[in-house]
Amino acid sequence: MRGSFDTDDRPLVLIWEVTQACDLACEHCRADARPGRHPDELTTAEGKSVLDAAARFDENQLVVLSGGDPCKRPDLTDLVAYGDDLGLRTSLTPSGTSSLTGDAIAALSDAGLRRMALSIDGGDAESHDAFRGEAGSFEETMRAAENARAANLPLQVNTTVCAQTVAQLPAIREVVREIGAVLWSVFFLVPVGRGQLLDPIGPDRADRVMEWLAEVADEEPFGVKTTEAPQFRRVKLQRRDAGPDAGLERRSGVVAGDGFAFVSHTGEIYPSGFLPKSAGTVREDDLVSVYRESSLFTALRDRDRLSGKCGQCEFRRVCGGSRSRAFAHTGDPLASDPLCPYEPDGYRPVSGD
């Protein structure tokens, strides 16, 4: 349990990767997306069953429809409307392409979409388009932001942090403010998919970036959160000289499998899209039961099972480290997160750390 939110019972965020199809070729793409849709994608009926299961977690469950580019599915608006009828809070992470028209965004908003997240990985067209692998992507993304505002649809901005983008963060901050986003979600690279070809930043620099992000959160009207960098919570506590217990009264420590679940385009149930270790499939297993009872998910929710520095860290209950990054580097989702430079009080390395 994390504060008042019981992550043993349900995830804070359930992501359904509705397709891996996408017209972009982004350098960091977890899905290694391709232009065409996979022939074994979940059907509309199967997708609605996923949404039915989400509503069994909670009628107000947050569901993120991701990709690839979810706009490549012709039934997307129907799926959003179905989720809205169930009472779900549905968000969308589309690609910045010409398919994201004003009419398409208005239709999604009318169907009940609650938020749209746009990816911005550079403070100008040149840097963003180079990272996204498509000329004109920045312009399309800015146009989509304008259309979202016209549809009264709250905006979130997603940004990848790696060696190629870290210097752009101050400029991206300005863009986030200018387009009126309500949240900036900053993703620290996990080497999966095409992201394996990118260079991550080092642990010490990661902590410095998080210290800067904490300042941004204090100064800007929009919220700031990190993805696959739960040590941001440790950094924020340390900035105010607070101990690890100070964060337990709030929802905190959400990591892969613990407050987070992912359904792939073909129905595999993962703790996260960045931790592609299957605990079942929605075509054969009950999504709610897999989250609550499978050995993989229950292990990830037991912070006392973490090994190495993460297992000995006094901040493990409010942080827990990126389980996805640990898995990507070691094959063990319970190992230490190599991005974290923090040495726990009384840390004693053991063989294999």
Rank of each mutant, 00 (worst) to 15 (best):
V175F: 03
V192F: 06
T159S: 15
L248C: 11
A151K: 07
E219H: 00
E174M: 00
G136E: 02
E146M: 09
A171Y: 03
A214T: 10
T226L: 06
D103W: 05
D124L: 13
G243S: 11
D124T: 14
P200K: 01
A229Y: 15
A104H: 07
A107K: 03
G123Y: 03
A217W: 04
P203N: 00
L189P: 02
D218S: 13
A130F: 04
A106Y: 04
G243P: 13
T160I: 14
V182M: 04
S127F: 10
R234P: 12
A214V: 14
E139P: 04
L237K: 07
F232A: 06
E140Y: 03
G133F: 05
F188D: 00
F232D: 01
E215W: 01
Q238K: 15
G202Q: 05
E139S: 12
E134H: 13
A242G: 10
T160S: 08
V166T: 09
G247E: 01
S185Q: 10
E215H: 08
P170K: 00
G243W: 08
I105W: 04
A206V: 08
D218K: 11
V161P: 04
A148E: 00
L213F: 04
Q168E: 14
V216S: 04
G123N: 06
A181V: 04
P154H: 08
E178D: 15
R115N: 10
L237W: 11
V224Y: 14
D241L: 09
P221K: 12
V157F: 02
M210W: 03
I120L: 15
R194E: 01
L113R: 05
E219G: 00
I120E: 08
H128N: 15
G243C: 09
D129Q: 09
Q238D: 15
V190G: 06
V157S: 03
V166A: 08
P244Q: 13
Q164A: 14
A125V: 04
T160H: 05
G247L: 12
P200E: 00
F222Y: 14
V235E: 12
R233M: 14
L108N: 07
R132S: 11
I179D: 02
M116W: 06
E215S: 13
D245I: 08
A104T: 12
L198F: 06
L113A: 09
A206S: 13
A125M: 09
D204A: 15
E134A: 15
P154K: 13
Q196R: 13
E134T: 13
E178I: 01
S119L: 05
F138W: 14
Q196T: 12
A206M: 08
E146N: 07
L108R: 02
V190I: 15
V175Q: 06
Q156A: 13
L113D: 08
A229K: 02
F188W: 06
E134D: 13
E174N: 11
F187E: 04
Q168L: 06
F138Y: 15
E215V: 07
W212V: 05
L153P: 07
F232Q: 01
D245S: 15
K236V: 12
A163K: 03
A117G: 12
V186N: 08
D129E: 06
V176C: 03
K225N: 11
A181L: 05
R149G: 00
G195I: 05
Q164P: 03
P203Y: 00
S119W: 08
V175H: 02
P170C: 04
M210R: 05
D103F: 06
L108F: 07
R208G: 07
Q164V: 10
A106S: 11
Q231P: 09
